[in-house]
Write a protein that binds this DNA or RNA. Structure first.
Length: 918
RNA sequence: GGGCGAUUAGCUCAGUUGGUUAGAGCAACUGGUUUACACCCAGUAGGUCGGCGGUUCGAGUCCGUCAUCGCCCACCA
């Protein structure tokens, strides 16, 4: 047992222990017969990611859950890994290549992928190493990557199965196209942003009636070259006689028909809509209904193509908008423009407006939508906070109602290449997907690859990460050990994640689990759902913002580097600070002083332990039992009973926090108990008994018992410092006995253990100590008010009908209140300021040097407060309905309250009367 | 246009199923070299719980409504 240094040096302690933990295998999650598993799958960070505050919050919480599970004796497995993050990583490496003057197309697919792998080897695990600094107790031996061979196979298998089951198809459909990344995106990767722009009102001349015009409004004049019709509502009388006629499209000048379609809103704009099937979903649908051609005037990179005609060819779409407007004006087609605000979809990653674009993509109809809803509705999966269930269900209902499919193909290279092969020599348009001679779909690929060409596209990253909870356990071909593990650890226990990926990831993982974790089945029973779900509880964290409520971002520079914070405050301090403010709501306003609170708490803990070590020899502390054996029940004071009762209470409170997922209440409860109850009151009150040889060993044993339990309870939040103190206070039998491997006693067990040895804990101690503390606080306040706070030679008097209690705590009162004496009196000594408490009225002897005016003011103020209470209490007592309908305990409580308040009131009233006249 | 959430002390937030006179941390102010801790100790001040209405013996807590703010979903060009 080392001597505890005066100052806690977080860095050396943290680095040292992390190594020991890892080497000792403390984080290994392995099957133990007859022991309940507790599993967390890390939300795999992107390999491009750097640790930010969001990760800290997220992973600190996971670590807390997993460490608590270990303490509860479960087989805890926290499964780590990273996500290949297709588009993000590819963009990153392309950027690097561009700096070297290269483009991915120069290298070709294979060489480019080599470059990405190289980059991944260098940078891909940085974030996991950063998590180690935080203290994350992952089972690193299992670290997984979504492009590992087995994972790759799992992804392809899921594709093939869904294809065979009819959920996946290829189709030419309107999709969200990102002109910068040049790939399709799913709806979830498109972010709607309000945009201020212009609303152009144009007029097209009617072919059959020269000189007459139809007015049309648009926000996108640059696409008018792709117009193939003008549509009006069939019931719109203004246009009835025009339907079937034509207008002149100004450029390229061409006749296009006026058609009637119900999709047009009569009351919006002019009621006439230009139809551009290649660049808008509604227009496309109209085009389909009216058999209109599709004129795509855009290139994949967002510039205009030959179909747009001069001068637009090769021009960027935003430039083209201005030029088109100018041209309309020159031609006399522009009627007017007005300011306009509408929502435009942006590519999440590239942050540019997406283009609705007609492209050939792979689509997935979501499987098991109904069961995915039922998993939550029937309570198999519980969300914390519960309100996110509504968001989840609402999204699923929308998917179901509107038949929204998932665009799963991406036109990038880094990812899982879609396992579909097309027979060479067959034209794209002639492919028959029902003919195995034309299209081959399998995990292994065709036996004669030379005759086939593989699909170029890869899968959406989320179409791989949705398998995370079971692909990591060896699915689809888990066997032997991995199969055992899949059975043992799946469904996993708790998912900790941000609500922002509830659709992208959470809902889809549930679907994947329901679809794949068992035989293929159209409909699932409730029991089957329970067996297949990927996790039982989902804990959603808030989003971390800066102290002004702004999103943390690199460009704002308002995102602190967590590693700097660890350097400054220690990982434990950071963890405590962050968890202390964890799930307040949607947003978490972060500022550094939160972390300061955590650091200060660690400092307090450190010093309390140090004080214990300085106060007397540390005996055998290796179990609760041996510590309790050192307690002499005869020597236990009311204060001891009080702190042991409180220890039981706080232990129960921590249990409740975990059971109910009320994580934020947990550090709060510990802070309050340890700092206020233990340090400020119990230790202070015990100081004299610690020096008294007859009581010392008992008091120190009580302290050891409290400290031991406190370290166990705090270990999940602040694992490093607790481990260090665990050793230093002799709770470990030897250097190799780690706190990590210990279990925590439940409140019930702890109490039973104590009571078995020392007899029943005095439950009344709680109330009694409260009275004593109130008196001490009152006396301290009086001293401060009369500017004698620092003097210890002030005598006090007390008038009380509970003198035995006061006598029993006399030493404590004198010590903690820092007064010379507390002498009982029968009456109010003349001219002394008084403080009324539930234990009696205390008088401060200032040798009659009282400031009468100040005293009167103070007493009157208090009288005012009490009067309010009395009025409220009396109203209740007169209220027959209250007396008859409120529970007896509440009525009794109110009655007592009133009596006490009344007594205090009378007391103060008397004091006031006895004040000398000014 | 739908939906979700928030509004409590100067700031950030607690406040469990309605039940004593609404709490904490930070900041502020006052006083402290109490031999564990100034990353500390003691104390003080600060709130008509967003407004209005309702249910109830009783509302910060439940219901309605309005206001402000935030988020999500949605093909009015």
């Amino acid at each position: 047992m080392a001597t505890i240094d005066k100052a806690y040096n977080a860095h050396t302690v943290e680095d040292r222990w992390y190594k020991i933990w890892e080497q000792s295998g403390a984080f290994r999650g392995e099957i133990r017969e007859g022991v309940d598993p507790y599993t967390i799958m890390i939300p795999p960070p992107n390999i491009t990611g750097m640790l930010h505050m969001g990760h800290i919050l997220n992973n600190a919480l996971q670590d807390i859950f997993i460490r608590r599970a270990r303490l509860e004796g479960k087989t805890a497995l926290w499964f780590p890994g990273t996500d290949h993050a297709g588009l993000a990583t590819q963009t990153r490496v392309e950027k690097k290549l561009r700096e070297e003057g290269l483009h991915r197309r120069d290298l070709g697919r294979e060489k480019f992928l080599d470059e990405v792998w190289k980059w991944r080897e260098e940078h891909g695990n940085i974030i996991l190493n950063q998590l180690r600094k935080l203290g994350a107790s992952c089972d690193w031996s299992r670290t997984s990557f979504t492009l590992d061979d087995h994972y790759y196979k799992a992804v392809l298998t899921s594709f093939v199965k869904l294809y065979e089951r009819g959920y996946i198809y290829r189709g030419l459909r309107m999709s969200n196209w990102c002109p910068v990344s040049q790939t399709a995106l799913s709806n979830e990767e498109v972010i709607m942003k309000p945009q201020r722009g212009l609303f152009y009102k144009m007029r097209y001349e009617i072919v059959e009636r020269p000189g007459e015009y139809v007015q049309i409004s648009t926000t996108r004049p640059e696409t008018l070259m792709g117009d193939v019709a003008v549509a009006v509502h069939p019931d719109d009388e203004r246009y009835t006689d025009l339907v079937g006629k034509h207008v002149w499209r100004p450029f390229p000048r061409e006749k296009i028909p006026i058609i009637a379609d119900k999709a047009v809103e009569k009351d919006f704009g002019t009621g006439a809509l230009k139809v551009t099937p290649a660049h808008d979903q509604v227009d496309f649908d109209i085009g389909q209904r009216h058999d209109l051609p599709v004129l795509d005037v855009l290139n994949p990179d967002g510039t205009l193509n030959e179909l747009a005609g001069d001068p637009f060819v090769g021009m960027d779409r935003f430039e083209a908008r201005k030029v088109a407007a100018r041209k309309l004006e020159e031609l006399g087609n522009l009627v007017d423009t007005e300011q306009y605000e509408n929502s435009v979809g942006f590519s999440e990653r590239a942050d540019v407006p997406i283009e609705p674009r007609l492209t050939m993509q792979w689509w997935m109809r979501y499987p098991k939508v109904d069961e995915t809803k039922r998993a939550v509705k029937e309570g198999h999966i519980r969300f914390h906070p519960k309100r996110w269930e509504k968001t989840y269900l609402h999204w699923l209902e929308t998917m179901e109602r509107d038949n929204i499919d998932w665009c799963i193909s991406r036109q990038v290279w880094w990812g899982h290449r879609i396992p579909v092969w097309y027979r060479k020599g067959i034209g794209k348009d002639d492919l028959d997907f029902n003919n195995p001679e034309h299209v081959h779909v399998s995990v292994e690929g065709p036996a004669d690859p030379e005759n086939w060409e593989q699909e170029e596209d890869v899968l959406d990253t989320w179409a791989s990460s949705w398998l995370w909870p079971f692909a990591n356990f060896g699915w689809p071909d888990a066997e032997g050990q991995t199969l055992e593990e899949l059975k043992h650890f799946y469904p996993t226990s708790t998912l900790v994640t941000g609500f922002d990926i509830i659709f992208l990831w959470v809902a889809r993982m549930v679907m994947a689990g329901l679809e794949f974790m068992g035989e293929e089945k159209e409909k699932l029973t409730s029991d089957e759902i329970a067996a297949r779900i990927p996790f039982k509880d989902v804990y959603f964290t808030g989003l971390i913002r800066d102290e002004k409520g702004r999103k943390m971002s690199k460009s704002l520079g308002n995102s602190p580097d967590p590693l700097d914070l660890i350097k400054k405050y220690g990982a434990d301090g950071l963890r405590f600070g962050v968890v202390n403010i964890a799930p307040s709501g949607q947003d978490i306003l972060f500022s550094e002083d939160r972390v300061e609170v955590g650091r200060n708490f660690c400092n307090k803990l450190w010093n309390a332990a140090r004080f214990r070590q300085m106060s007397g020899e540390v005996g055998n502390n290796t179990s609760e039992e041996v510590i309790i054996d050192r307690i002499d029940p005869e020597k236990l004071s009311t204060y001891d009973h009080w702190i042991l009762n409180r220890l039981e209470e706080v232990t129960a409170e921590v249990e409740r926090c975990f059971n109910k997922f009320e994580v934020h209440a947990y550090p709060r409860a510990m802070y309050e108990f340890f700092w206020n109850d233990y340090c400020d009151w119990y230790v202070e009150a015990s100081k004299s008994r610690m020096k008294d040889p007859s009581t010392q060993s008992t008091v120190l044993a009580v302290q050891d018992l409290v400290l031991r339990q406190v370290l166990l309870l705090l270990q999940p939040i602040i694992p490093f410092i607790t481990e260090e103190l665990w050793q230093n206070l002799g709770f470990a039998g030897s250097d190799s006995d780690l706190l990590q491997n210990c279990q925590v006693k439940t409140a019930v067990d702890l109490k039973a253990l104590i009571e078995a040895k020392v007899g029943a804990l005095d439950a009344d101690a709680l109330a009694e100590i409260e009275l004593v503390q109130e008196l001490i606080t009152r006396i301290r306040a009086m001293k401060a008010e009369y500017n004698v706070a620092s003097r210890r030679d002030i005598p006090f008097f007390i008038q009380s009908d509970k003198l035995p209690i006061i006598d029993g705590h006399m030493e404590t009162i004198l010590n903690l209140a820092q007064i010379q004496s507390l002498e009982a009196v029968d009456d109010h000594p003349e001219g002394m300021p008084a403080g009324v408490t539930h234990l009696g009225t205390a008088f401060l002897d200032l040798a009659h040097s009282i400031d009468v005016a100040a005293e009167r003011q103070r007493l009157e103020k208090e009288l005012g407060k009490l009067e309010k209470g009395i009025r409220a209490g009396e109203a209740k007592m007169k209220n027959g309905k209250f007396l008859s309908s409120a529970p007896p305990a509440v009525v009794e409580g109110a009655r007592e309250q009133l009596a006490k308040t009344q007594a205090r009131y009378d007391e103060i009233q008397k004091l006031l009367m006895s004040l000398p006249k000014e």
